[in-house]
Design a binder for these strands. Structure first.
Lengths: 237, 237
DNA sequence: GAGATCTAAACGTCATACTTTTTCTTGCCG
DNA sequence: CGGCAAGAAAAAGTATGACGTTTAGATCTC
């Protein structure tokens, strides 16, 4: 699943970005723009623009007389959605899923607490609707519908937090939840306890009980962390 | 404080990016590449590359026959370090500081817990050194030195967590701490209680006590949140 | 007036020439 | 023999002109 739209630029960018994040070019490797232009049969204009974007992601560094050098992962803008997508689509998927799940576990509880303080009436209503939707699709092989409500639920929480950086993580959570559904328990119905927790979070937010919203959300994310070893086994273990 | 290196590209990018994030071009505004080329007296080549980078940050969207359109903030890659820097340097600084501090408050305790599990002996030693450095510079108008140790301390925690996304937030924390020192209490010595907390975190990490490391770090970040209203008053209040 | 067609505006792509920086070589001098 | 300086070459950076492609909007037809 790639995000490349039409246009030479996106195609080349996507191919190169995926290759780099997948480790096909180890750090320190040198890429020359003319070579890339030849390889993809595009003009140098296109390649230059691609390199500029890769450079803005700190995936590579371009230096005169030397070429385009691939940087170490420590330099990468690992929060860039496209980098995340590439890593999820490539060999780095397990590690990326671990990182994202931890990130999510750290953020969501805090976001839920903020949401309890800041959510508008409309957002509360939407949240409740999502929770109810989860309940009503939690049995009888309706996983796709359940997933939809689940994703929507977490998106509302993150948005209602009022923090635009938290809100931006909605896609990340969606990706994790989707990955979980597709890789792990496609056959099982969701855990009823988890469904209940979501309903309770919606209630806590509606009542403005920040402390409770945060606590219960933490329970949800603890579950997500527990699933990690099934979804993305620790390579160091 | 801008990050633009030499080269036309960076200059134009920095100027445009700052202008957009500062709200000089409201969402929906249209920018035409030729105009920009004229205004900065550079070739279209340069402008195109700049636009491509801005596009990769989701600050703008380029459509044929219409021009380069500025997107709403909801679309921005607010995690991009350059976007963060621009917002910190522009009119959006208070709001950006709020968001970053909340982000930090959510992440750092979790990172400290992970660090307690994953830190190498070397990292433990470095952490202790930082904490001791903080103690020894915490009195007698040595704020610059204290700040240096403080930043290093938090960087080690984030790196030692083993999560490359957390590690990337080192710059963010550095920015917040620097801003705090320069805007708020330039004249006061640091709070002794805060210094003690850092020492305790170092100890907990060294002993591998994840729960304690997380709890005490949370105390530190609660303090950071409390300072928010002085540093970056809530506009909605 | 609704729909199809035409047009022009703006970005997208290409090719080429030239500039600038930086590395590496070469050769001089001590 | 070694170091330093001058120079050559390599690769990215910049500029320019031409042409392709998409698409909003005007025009034309029925």
């Amino acid at each position: 699943m790639t995000t490349a739209g039409p246009g030479l630029h996106d195609q080349v960018l996507d191919t190169l970005g995926l290759a780099i994040t997948a480790g096909e070019y180890p750090p320190g490797s040198v890429i020359r723009t003319d070579e890339v232009a030849q390889r993809f049969d595009v003009s140098r204009t296109v390649v230059r623009e691609v390199v500029r974007v890769l450079e803005s992601m700190h995936l590579v560094e371009s230096r005169r007389r030397v070429g385009v050098t691939v940087l170490a992962i420590e330099e990468w803008n690992v929060f860039d959605p496209r980098v995340i997508r590439w890593r999820l689509d490539g060999a780095d998927r397990p590690r990326q899923l671990r990182s994202l799940t931890m990130l999510r576990s750290a953020i969501e509880p805090v976001a839920a607490g903020l949401a309890a303080r800041n959510a508008t009436a409309e957002q509360c209503a939407e949240l409740t609707a999502c929770a109810l939707g989860m309940v009503s699709t939690s049995r009888g092989q309706q996983l796709p519908e359940y997933l939809r409500h689940d994703i929507a639920f977490h998106r509302v929480i993150l948005t209602a937090s009022g923090n635009e950086m938290f809100a931006r993580l909605g896609d990340v959570v969606a990706e994790i939840l989707t990955g979980r559904t597709h890789h792990q328990v496609m056959f099982d119905d969701p855990d009823p306890a988890a469904v209940t927790l979501h309903v309770e979070v919606a209630g806590a937010v509606r009542e403005g009980d920040a402390e409770r919203a945060e606590r219960i959300t933490r329970e949800i994310t603890v579950g997500a962390l527990a699933e990690l070893d099934v979804l993305a086994p620790d390579p160091s273990a």
